[in-house]
Design a protein around this nucleic acid. Structure first.
Lengths: 349, 349
DNA sequence: GTGAAAGCGCTAACAA
DNA sequence: TTGTTAGCGCTTTCAC
């Protein structure tokens, strides 16, 4: 174990009192420059580090940010949150915070964990992911006045006001749809999830809006299913076999897109003779675009929408530090952030 | 913010003194049963939770386990550590520990972070991943007498003794090779990494050993390359085009296996007329087996070796708690753990 | 079996 | 500008 260096050791070394050391470190303005230098030198020489536990007892601040780590659900999209987590850890460290992990099976269990954590480790804030309609967690945290940010918008119209950072899914699918329109496609289908999920509805909306603006009626061009590769494949089949002449598919996830790719490449559908965007007889594969730019997308050459996760994480930390360290002006609350995903074009579209 | 309940509140409510509460909680044996019940009831009613910071100041124990979170390197294999991390968080919580995250770009930076963390948050232990030859980190932690476990064996022969948990890569590739032998393959190739990496050498060894035992000379059947899909594809091509009649490939990672799959399915190589395992004229695709059972493997139907990551994490926590909470007998150190991966058979083999 | 006192390392308030 | 005092909430002596 490393020998413990306390503020008293530094004070002795620098020939000042303990409080002066504390001041030199925490309120540099209040100490004479020369004294401050002497203290800093002593800190350096002794390898002193403030003890968080002691500081926390005095200040009530732990400099800990807590976040839930989820089991990768379908495995493919799991990596999204992991990349976000990595960005969060880095950004937090840069602002002098550390990330504390916890798990919870559902909202209720997570609220219980909030209580646990708040009583024991006293994290200064929480970062919530996977927000959804009627989210118990945000209501509870708001009620308890615990600082937090969500990565994901509050989706309910009646949902309470809180800080959030999100990626504009609709803008993403709109960009994807535009990309396909530019390539000459007209009958562009959409594979998504059943209505009711904020994220899914948002992504569908971007596609529908763009198609409509281009003069194409989206009616009948959309299918909803659960987020599984096999389901995506089935839904894609169904859509491609319809008589709407679908030549391209925008998908709400890489899982669905991978299924769509399987369907599109299956014999009899892979190549659509005479159905190419030009309307000519050229054979063209059905174009597919996914969402999240997961490793799977990269591996199979799937064009996909990439979320700026490191950026999103950095914004979460920025909002939190403004709230915690800065003096957030009452009339001027920190602004929520909506980031745009970017289209990563590969062979599939 | 939740109202703060201290031990004094509980004491008042239960009509006892403060450290009787502490005793009831920490040394249940020393308090009369009836008193203990009264205290526990008060704890329940008040929703009391011991404050870690205060306890930590007194005991010097933080009940924090620190672990590095890495940027997903090639993206495909990144999910392995994430799944391990999830298991660790769950197991740790069950033992009353929380997981603290940090990042570091290399060994040296990580050692710096050790110092930082130890001075500030005082984690009780570290879990190290991605151990390698000449690991600076283990040497430093050992020198400082900081408790830690590695997920991964100490690979250097001269490497210092410490607790570790690992998955037996050689056993995995051996099982994969046996599976292929049972299916009738003889000329089974291996795609791995350049010699020198403990993990890679271990995985190659399992393949070579099994092949030799079956009477097949592994000479010339192995290729080494960096862990990229494209490199795997090239190496697989090279191996399949040789005149050794290779009909199956065992790979050190899913990335390489994915590349191998591309190569194996390419026109002219995908179907090996007359080279089937039976030696007959039947056409058979080249069999491919990967390592890590990543989401990509599942998505593309790649047979792969699955590491018992949750189990490995649980063992790490178990070793640590024995070291930290239990009285590890000097003559009887906790045993290191070597787990076996399991073969997940899919279409590719 | 239970209570009183001390102190872990730090910083907010006040005094010099 | 610097030093002194007090106390955050807990547990570890040591009396009772």
């Amino acid at each position: 174990m490393a020998e413990k260096v306390t503020i008293a050791d530094v004070a002795r070394r620098a020939g000042v009192s303990r409080q002066t050391v504390s001041n030199a470190l925490n309120s540099p303005g209040v100490v004479r420059e020369e004294t401050r230098q002497r203290v800093l030198r002593a800190v350096e020489e002794l390898g002193y580090r403030v003890n968080q536990a002691a500081r926390q007892m005095r200040t009530g601040r732990s400099r800990l940010i807590a976040i839930r780590i989820e089991p990768d659900r379908d495995g493919i999209n799991g990596s999204v949150l992991d990349r976000f987590l990595h960005g969060l850890t880095e950004s937090a460290a840069r602002s002098g915070y550390r990330v504390l992990l916890y798990t919870a099976d559902d909202d209720r269990a997570e609220v219980d964990t909030f209580e646990d954590l708040l009583g024991a480790y006293e994290p200064d804030a929480f970062v919530l992911t996977s927000t959804h309609h009627g989210d118990l967690r945000t209501a509870w945290l708001l009620d308890q006045k615990v600082p937090f940010v969500t990565f994901g918008r509050p989706w309910s119209s009646d949902s309470p006001k809180h800080l959030w950072v999100d990626v504009d899914g609709a803008a993403g699918t709109a960009a994807a749809t535009r990309h396909l329109l530019d390539a000459g496609h007209r009958a562009i289908g959409f594979l998504g999830w059943p209505p009711g999920s904020g994220v899914g509805d948002d992504r569908r909306e971007g596609w529908a809006r763009t198609l409509t603006a281009a003069g194409v009626d989206p009616t009948g061009l959309s299918r909803a299913t659960s987020d599984e590769v096999a389901d995506g494949e089935k839904a894609a089949y169904d859509l491609l076999r319809s008589d709407l002449g679908v030549t391209a598919l925008v998908c709400a996830s890489d899982s669905l897109a991978l299924g769509a790719l399987h369907a599109a490449r299956s014999p009899g559908l892979a190549w659509q003779p005479g159905r190419g965007p030009g309307g000519g007889a050229a054979e063209r594969p059905v174009a597919v675009i996914g969402f999240d730019d997961t490793p799977v997308a990269k591996a199979v050459g799937l064009t996909s929408l990439s979320q700026p996760l490191a950026q999103a994480a950095a914004h979460c930390v920025a909002l939190l530090t403004t709230l915690l360290d800065g003096q957030a002006k009452p009339g001027e609350p920190p602004a929520n952030v909506l980031l745009e995903p970017s289209l990563v074009v590969r062979q599939s579209a």
